[in-house]
Computed example of a mutant assay.
Amino acid sequence: MRLQLGGRLLPMVGRVRMYVCGITPYAVTQLGHAATYVWADALDRVLSWHGHTVSIARNITDVDDVLFAEARRRGESPTMLATLQRAAFEATMTTLRVRTPDLQPSAANHIGHVIALASALLDQERAYVRGGTVYARTGSAYLRAGIDRAEALARAEEYHDHPDDPDKDDPLDVVLWQETADDEVSWPSPWGKGRPGWHAECAAMVLALYGPSVDIHCGGADLAFPHHAAEAELAEAATGVMPFARAWLRAGTVMVGGEKMAKSTGNLVLVEDLLADYPAAALRLLILDRPWAEPWNWSRDALDAAAAELDDLYAAAARPDAALSGSAAIPARLLEDLDVPTALAMAIEDGGQAARTLIEMLALS
């Protein structure tokens, strides 16, 4: 099998290990998040179609300052809020025909692995302690994301990595383990009561589940820095194994009027609202009928167009076969960087089994 992903050949032999950055369970699922999970699911289905056994881990970030703040605002326990939001998220994923992952680790269940990761980095002098907080030396991790230091500092501020922390040796160092106040959620550690840093959570979960590397790491494009860059830096520094991920699938950012869809900007489009008016297959096609890495603008007109194109695909599937080679060409086309737009055009033109194959491969029924 010759999978092209991100413009490079990615040979696969046997089992494929995929890790997908999951949700912080404090709010309902929005379209930007759903895009990542639908693309990861499509890749899983394409690999499985070609005979690979795919093992997928999708984490739950249930140890997070944003989650804790939202729980306080609602007057609920963080555990209860995370449980309810996780159940709602999983119901939405089921409706969208996103397969249930083989592994669903939560940060709260991997505290010991974060402590082990921090200890390993301290042993190699890739981390240091200030008070009860452990910092990792990640000042050059931004180079992995192809950005300059000024942009890295701006993004570190945006993602609450606190580049202005005076205890850091470098503003771009990240927290492995953070000291907490007495009234905050915490766990015991060799450095006192505290909780893990965000980037360390994902690195520790991958190492615990799959060892020192994965074949494909999935997430949103907005996570390239600081999260993915720091995560890879931590794992590689701890294990000495490179690369941490053989390939990255970062789904393009979903925009509204040219601005990133985000709770902070108040421009969220909720998946549950869309599913009240449109079939799940139309929403999947809206997400998939484009190059996976490119940012794109949400509009109701675009969803209407996806629904109409889905009808065209169903009509094509009902036609007699025009060319027997079409059904074989569809799976091959999807190996070329998950080229759904070309495969869709071929399926509608050829009809018959070619269209039915695409519908089955991408769960568009």
Results as ranks from 00 to 15, higher is better:
residue 325 S to C: 05
residue 24 T to L: 09
residue 148 D to Q: 03
residue 178 Q to C: 07
residue 49 W to M: 01
residue 109 N to G: 13
residue 52 H to L: 11
residue 182 D to H: 13
residue 123 D to M: 08
residue 348 I to E: 04
residue 101 P to K: 02
residue 219 G to E: 12
residue 310 L to N: 07
residue 301 D to S: 11
residue 332 A to Y: 08
residue 194 G to V: 12
residue 103 L to T: 01
residue 235 A to C: 12
residue 268 L to A: 09
residue 205 M to A: 09
residue 26 Y to V: 02
residue 159 Y to V: 01
residue 1 M to H: 03
residue 86 R to H: 07
residue 74 R to M: 13
residue 208 A to R: 11
residue 269 V to C: 15
residue 77 S to A: 15
residue 321 D to P: 08
residue 332 A to P: 00
residue 212 P to M: 08
residue 66 V to G: 00
residue 94 T to N: 04
residue 331 P to Y: 01
residue 177 W to Y: 08
residue 279 P to R: 00
residue 80 M to E: 10
residue 237 A to P: 00
residue 280 A to V: 03
residue 233 E to K: 11
residue 21 C to P: 06
residue 219 G to M: 12
residue 268 L to Y: 00
residue 328 A to Y: 12
residue 245 A to H: 05
residue 313 L to P: 06
residue 83 T to M: 14
residue 192 G to S: 10
residue 361 M to Q: 02
residue 91 A to C: 06
residue 51 G to P: 14
residue 292 W to L: 05
residue 123 D to G: 11
residue 139 G to F: 10
residue 65 D to G: 06
residue 75 G to A: 09
residue 147 I to R: 07
residue 165 D to A: 07
residue 65 D to F: 09
residue 80 M to A: 15
residue 187 W to N: 01
residue 262 A to D: 02
residue 234 L to E: 02
residue 326 G to I: 14
residue 1 M to R: 00
residue 232 A to C: 04
residue 37 Y to V: 05
residue 204 A to W: 09
residue 130 R to L: 03
residue 273 D to K: 11
residue 72 R to L: 11
residue 99 R to F: 01
residue 329 A to D: 13
residue 32 G to I: 04
residue 236 E to R: 03
residue 114 V to G: 05
residue 116 A to P: 03
residue 187 W to F: 14
residue 44 D to V: 07
residue 286 L to K: 05
residue 333 R to H: 02
residue 197 G to H: 12
residue 7 G to F: 06
residue 183 D to F: 03
residue 259 E to K: 15
residue 1 M to F: 06
residue 324 L to N: 03
residue 134 V to K: 10
residue 281 A to C: 04
residue 260 K to F: 09
residue 365 S to W: 09
residue 130 R to K: 13
residue 57 A to I: 08
residue 252 G to C: 12
residue 299 S to E: 06
residue 16 V to L: 12
residue 359 I to T: 12
residue 232 A to T: 08
residue 283 L to C: 07
residue 267 N to L: 08
residue 209 L to H: 13
residue 251 A to G: 08
residue 145 A to W: 06
residue 86 R to A: 11
residue 362 L to S: 13
residue 287 I to P: 01
residue 250 R to Q: 15
residue 195 R to Y: 08
residue 322 A to E: 14
residue 34 A to D: 03
residue 115 I to R: 13
residue 203 A to R: 05
residue 38 V to R: 00
residue 72 R to H: 12
residue 149 R to L: 11
residue 52 H to W: 08
residue 106 S to N: 06
residue 165 D to L: 05
residue 36 T to N: 14
residue 151 E to A: 14
residue 139 G to I: 12
residue 317 A to D: 09
residue 63 V to I: 15
residue 3 L to E: 01
residue 79 T to K: 11
residue 338 L to G: 01
residue 34 A to T: 03
residue 51 G to A: 04
residue 34 A to C: 10
residue 118 A to I: 10
residue 123 D to T: 12
residue 88 A to G: 02
residue 138 T to V: 11
residue 117 L to G: 05
residue 95 T to N: 01
residue 316 A to M: 14
residue 206 V to W: 00
residue 168 K to G: 04
residue 291 P to S: 06
residue 50 H to I: 09
residue 274 L to H: 09
residue 76 E to T: 03
residue 133 T to Q: 10
residue 241 V to S: 09
residue 117 L to I: 11
residue 208 A to K: 10
residue 353 Q to M: 09
residue 311 D to I: 14
residue 55 S to H: 11
residue 78 P to E: 12
residue 74 R to L: 15
residue 121 L to K: 04
residue 131 G to T: 14
residue 356 R to L: 11
residue 314 Y to N: 04
residue 311 D to A: 15
residue 273 D to I: 01
